[in-house]
Nucleic acid binder design. Structure first.
Lengths: 264, 264
DNA sequence: TGAAAAATGTGGGGCACTCCACAAAAAATT
DNA sequence: AATTTTTTGTGGAGTGCCCCACATTTTTCA
């Protein structure tokens, strides 16, 4: 059942079912095996197998009798390495949230690290005003009553649960804040870069309209390069990371006057 | 065990446990009865009772074997009536989704009925462009790859999981679409009204910028009135509901040339 | 078209969870 | 201290779910 490069036949039974399951999870926090089996007209065992597959991909959190949507921020493919990454992201997020002063105005970028920051910021209850293009960030912070959240307009990109595009950029340009918190795919001595298409311009706009720029990045991403350039090191006020930068990168950061913080 | 205004003794066994449960839900999407019982050193029956109480307060979504964090955003409390309402909402949503033609441009309002519509629209896979102020609607439709989703800017309102405010209205005003799908708190012969603050102006803007206006409303809401007036019956093109309107309302609709559709 | 591979269904044993009613323990009230 | 109220535990019947192995159907590929 490989069909590599072959005629795209109208075959979709298993796939359609799994898409439906994911869709359902966006609406209900929990779905039951038995319920779905009945709705799809398949045996419970088949649904169980779907669950197992989705769970292996990190798209579903398996539970007795059914499954839940995985935590926002837990991303597709949580193997050993990305689990490890989550701990680091949490540390970075907690540290970043601590940099926010009561009454601050902020911009927060989309991404799993910045989402962790939003969680801790909501938990801390620091009163502040936040402008973001990330739907999960908005929902997390909005939950806490204490922060005022402004969402950017734009085209919705499901893979990142965020909005992008010229409308997003224009909206950001019409504001000015105390500090912004940005994530990125990679950082090296020549600057910061991003892989996901359409996000670089949004990040640039946020940096432009903030008095202070904090870059949140996990250790794995130090030293690499992405597809689109976001900005140079000179544009960064502080780097918040899980491990101290080394070698050329460390020197370049120092030369550009970037404050390097290691989240413990 | 009332202790009204009495000395606040250091009694917290039940309360502490329930706080722990909620805390746990912030970290994991699902918790098990058995797991917690063991951790707290209490019987599973006690945890079950905790779950029931939290569930009644809408703080936990009960599932077989455990519980999940409730959906981010709106959760009024699903008692008998709102469960019953869901079936009707689904019927209405399915019918409304069927009114969309391939290539249409739409505006979709925030609300539980319109969210159902978004589900069916995503399922149908009708290619279209949708502008919405509801985060769940955006996420649901965005999932399906087939619709282009534009999100409005504005202040995020956690209770409705939607954005509102002057920026939302201004953004809507700068667009024009084929049809819009609106929900409301109430409808009576004098017009459509809404209770949730800040939504009436958004709905009005959508209606203004659409060639055709579809009002989605469940039977319980026919005949009542809300706090803020949205529009008159003349502004409505079609009413999609779960049961045929009767009496004065039916005559008023007829007089205003509203097409009444009953979703089966 | 026939063989291999994948997906799905079936049946049964076992375990986990639910539900209920009542008993026991702890806390609050008098 | 005795009584009422609240909270928690216990036991047993019933049900849903899990898991495994194997049969059956569907799809893919030679």
């Amino acid at each position: 059942m490989k069909n590599i490069g072959g005629t795209p036949r109208p075959r979709l039974r298993k796939k359609a079912r799994r898409e439906q399951i994911l869709l359902e999870l966006k609406l209900h926090p929990h779905v039951r095996v038995s319920e779905l089996a009945e709705r799809f007209g398949v045996s419970t065992e088949t649904v169980r197998r779907d669950f197992e597959a989705l769970s292996a991909d990190g798209l579903l959190f398996r539970a007795h009798g059914g499954g839940s949507a995985p935590m926002r921020g837990h991303y597709p493919g949580l193997d050993e390495r990305s689990r490890q990454g989550m701990e680091e992201r949490e540390r970075i997020g907690r540290h970043a949230a601590g940099l926010v002063q009561p009454g601050d105005t902020l911009m927060i970028d989309a991404g799993s690290t910045t989402l962790q920051m939003a969680r801790f910021l909501a938990y801390a209850g620091t009163p502040c005003t936040v402008l973001t293009n990330s739907l999960p960030v908005a929902m997390t912070l909005g939950q806490g009553e204490t922060a005022e959240v402004i969402l950017c307009p734009g085209e919705y990109l499901a893979s990142e649960s965020a909005v992008i595009g010229p409308e997003t950029v224009a909206f950001i340009e019409s504001h000015m804040v105390d500090q912004c918190f940005i994530g990125a795919t990679a950082i090296d001595p020549r600057g910061v870069s991003e892989t996901a298409r359409g996000f670089a311009s949004v990040k640039r706009a946020m940096i432009r309209r903030s008095r202070r720029t904090n870059l949140l990045i996990i250790r794995d991403k130090m030293g690499g390069t992405g597809f689109a350039r976001v900005c140079g090191l000179d544009d960064i006020s502080a780097l918040i990371t899980g491990a101290a930068p080394e070698g050329k990168l460390a020197r370049a950061l120092d030369r550009s006057g970037v404050e390097a913080m290691v989240a413990t």
